[in-house]
Amino acid sequence: MGAEVNDPHGGEYSLDDQVGFLLRLANQRHTTIFQAHTLHGLTPTQFTALIRVAEQGECSQNHLGRLAAMDVATIKGVVDRLREKGLITIKPAPHDRRRSLISLSPEGAELIGPLREVGHRITQETLQPLTASEQRNLLKILRKIC
């Protein structure tokens, strides 16, 4: 048997106590904060992909999709838009021309430092209502359920 969830409504269903509803509200709050701070009009998925390329270095589009937790169709669109913005370069893999290798363009590389700084600000603002201990616990719990 799984762990029992504390139910303040004595078994009655209350949307306000459902994890999916609360996660969606938290995500909406975070997205609003993200949009207020983002650079170059990047979407959250574009931001994620760009940071992952910076962390990983040159990688295939499929590998980038796995690193960024995006399906094949989503990562293709994200990569196309980042290329259009001049933030990444794409070249065929030397041993398999059907595969694309993604890397940061010089413009993309220059943007990584400021993106990391704004990323910290976004996280700080998102978590601002929580104490430092609550922030650490929330991140620990989210990693556990992901």
Rank of each mutant, 00 (worst) to 15 (best):
C146K: 12
L87M: 10
E12P: 00
V118Y: 03
H37T: 02
P106C: 04
E107K: 15
K85E: 13
G77V: 04
R83Q: 15
T126C: 04
G86C: 06
K144Y: 06
H9N: 10
I112S: 06
F34R: 04
R136G: 01
A54E: 06
E12Y: 02
T32Q: 05
F34H: 03
V79T: 14
S60L: 03
H30V: 09
T89Y: 05
I112Q: 05
V72K: 07
E110A: 15
D80V: 12
I88W: 09
L23R: 10
Q124N: 10
D96G: 01
K140L: 11
G57H: 07
G113P: 02
S60V: 11
I102L: 11
K85R: 15
T32Y: 02
G86H: 05
R66N: 02
L42W: 11
E4I: 13
K140W: 03
R98H: 03
S14P: 01
V79W: 05
S100W: 06
L87P: 03
S60N: 06
A93N: 08
T31E: 09
L130P: 06
Q46L: 09
T89Q: 09
F21Y: 15
N27C: 05
G41T: 12
P129Q: 13
L15E: 12
Q56H: 09
H40F: 09
N27M: 12
E58P: 14
R66C: 01
I90C: 08
H95L: 15
A132K: 15
L127V: 15
A3C: 05
L64G: 07
A132S: 13
G119C: 07
I75L: 03
L23T: 04
G65N: 12
Q61R: 15
A36P: 00
H30M: 10
H63R: 14
D17G: 03
V79S: 12
T32W: 00
G119V: 07
L130N: 09
I75D: 03
L111W: 09
R98Q: 01
P94L: 03
R29S: 05
L39F: 10
T126R: 03
T45W: 12
L64F: 09
E55T: 09
E134M: 12
Q61M: 08
I88E: 04
N137D: 08
G113Y: 06
L82T: 11
T45M: 11
Q135H: 01
G86R: 13
S60W: 07
L25A: 11
I90H: 00
L42F: 05
E125P: 01
G86E: 06
T31M: 03
P114C: 13
R97S: 03
G57V: 07
R52E: 13
E12Q: 11
F34I: 07
I145V: 15
E12H: 14
T126A: 15
A36F: 00
M1P: 00
P114D: 11
E117W: 04
R83H: 12
K144R: 13
K76W: 01
S14Y: 04
V78E: 06
D80P: 01
E134K: 10
Q124K: 07
T131V: 08
H95R: 08
A73K: 15
E107W: 02
V78N: 03
L130W: 06
E107N: 12
V19E: 09
